[in-house]
């Protein structure tokens, strides 16, 4: 039974695309067949983050409108055999998508893949509502920062009212992925802690991705971090999050505060200076 998972947030720039690529890659590395679908029509970037930008011929809009067949538009990852990408159109806008057309594409993808990861655009307009429309479960990507938490709360409300499952009286499983977390700042009281965000949003925690230069390096190279640098803390956190999605029970370890020699010797002063 295939699963449709939307990666969403409301706010832009919190790490939806990075998380879609990383979770998609990790699920594929765990042996599942996975397609990651870019719903950000007009501002596609998943192709770039996944290193397939030079191979895009057809896109989601072409398939929705019947101008291309689904297999023509799917791009198979060169490194992970079971991972595919369905890119968004760069020249159209979100109005080119219809609910009926997206529903048909999702149904076709369900025949071919174990996991369909829908990378939502920011906002709460048509692109975002269509990305979540057919989801069985949702990963809500949130930064420990007031505007991101507020927008996530709004998106959680929409997942509970605007999805097809919600309209049928069924539940959309929701998971919180806390990204760009800085343990040192949280320890100093300058950033909301994991518990603060969990208490406010009240959905289960899927994982914590620490703020890390490794994440930027991976997208610079167009290679999902779980593949490029599997030993890095961010890659391990994504890998564990993916395995939790597959039903494994793995305790969540909060990122550790990494303190240099100066801050060890002089405490907080060195951090501020």
């Amino acid at each position: 039974m295939s699963k449709v998972m939307v990666v969403t947030s409301g706010k832009g720039g919190v790490g939806k695309t990075t998380s879609s690529a990383s979770l998609g890659a990790a699920l594929a590395q765990a042996g599942k067949t996975v397609v990651v679908v870019d719903f950000d029509v007009g501002l596609r970037n998943l192709d770039l983050v996944m290193g397939a930008e030079r191979r895009v011929v057809y896109d989601l809009v072409n398939v929705v409108q019947g101008d291309a067949k689904l297999p023509q538009a799917l791009i198979r990852d060169k490194r992970i055999e079971t991972l595919s990408l369905l890119p968004a159109s760069q020249t159209r806008d979100k109005d080119a998508l219809t609910e009926e057309g997206v529903g048909r594409v999702i149904d076709d993808l369900r025949e071919k893949f174990d996991w369909i990861v829908c990378d939502s655009p920011a906002g709460i307009d048509k692109g975002a509502t269509l990305a979540m429309r057919f989801a069985d479960l949702a990963v809500v990507v949130t930064n420990p920062e007031v505007s991101s938490v507020r927008d996530s709360d709004r998106i959680i409300g929409m997942l509970d009212s605007k999805t097809r499952r919600a309209e049928r009286g069924e539940k959309v499983e929701k998971h919180l992925l806390l990204t760009r977390y800085d343990a040192a700042r949280a320890a100093r009281g300058d950033m909301m802690k994991v518990e603060d965000v969990l208490e406010i949003l009240a959905i289960p925690l899927l994982g914590i991705i620490a703020e890390s230069p490794d994440v930027l390096t991976a997208s610079n190279l167009g290679c999902p971090i779980t593949l490029h640098n599997p030993a890095s803390p961010a890659a391990r956190a994504y890998d564990e999050a993916a395995r939790r999605l597959l039903g494994e029970t793995i305790a969540i370890t909060a990122p550790m505060e990494r303190r240099g020699l100066m801050s060890r010797l002089f405490g907080r002063k060195a951090v501020v200076a």
């Binding site: 007031v146 507020r150 100093r188 009281g189 950033m191 909301m192 802690k193």
Partner: peptide
């Protein structure tokens, strides 16, 4: 500390 303020406002 600003984090508790952020939490309470939210």
């Amino acid at each position: 500390r600003s984090a508790p303020v952020a939490r309470d406002r939210l």
